[in-house]
């Protein structure tokens, strides 16, 4: 398959998240991802972007944007999500424990955990003073 790359820039706002998620799903499927894989990357992308909107840009939401790129590399789809919020690596957050009883459960904190479950690899880097999360999802045969 010829290499291709799809990109989208959205304002960093809750009401833009579904648009971004569906863009990633459509792009991934066009690049060969199956239905289940496309569902899983949707959840992963939603969790990352929700974190950026709710936490990253909290201090300065005006004119904030999020850049999303989807490309195929061999037998995997690579999704890159880049933002200009203060540098922060969400992958370093303490992971929640699925065995926690109800009374000790915090209501949130599951987003990054789901990301790690639903993609094959996730990386963070600070690139030119921007946060960049890379999600790698294998294309199932």
């Amino acid at each position: 398959m010829a290499s291709s790359k799809s990109t989208l820039r959205i304002p960093a706002a809750i009401d833009q998240i579904r648009r971004a998620v569906l863009f990633v799903a459509t792009s991934s499927q066009r690049m060969g991802m199956g239905t289940d894989g496309a569902h899983q990357v949707q959840i992963a992308v939603e969790e990352i972007i929700t974190n950026i909107v709710e936490h990253g840009y909290r201090a300065d939401p005006q004119s904030a944007v999020i850049d999303i790129a989807v490309e195929r590399e061999g037998q995997q789809v690579i999704i890159t999500i880049t933002d200009d919020a203060p540098l922060f690596n969400p992958l370093l957050n303490t992971e929640p424990d699925p065995h926690t009883p109800l009374e000790d459960r915090k209501t949130g904190g599951w987003g990054v955990y789901f990301v790690k479950q639903y993609v094959d690899a996730v990386h963070y880097r600070a690139a030119s003073n921007r946060n960049q999360i890379t999600l790698i999802k294998k294309i199932a045969n």
């Binding site: 569902h39 959840i43 939603e46 969790e47 929700t50 109800l102 209501t107 949130g108 599951w110 955990y113």
Partner: peptide, 19 residues
């Protein structure tokens, strides 16, 4: 057909409230 952690959060809040 689709539920992210945002939906689970509401279920946990609701479960605690009913209990």
């Amino acid at each position: 057909e689709y539920m992210s952690s945002a939906g689970l959060r509401e279920i946990v809040v609701g479960l605690k409230a009913t209990k």
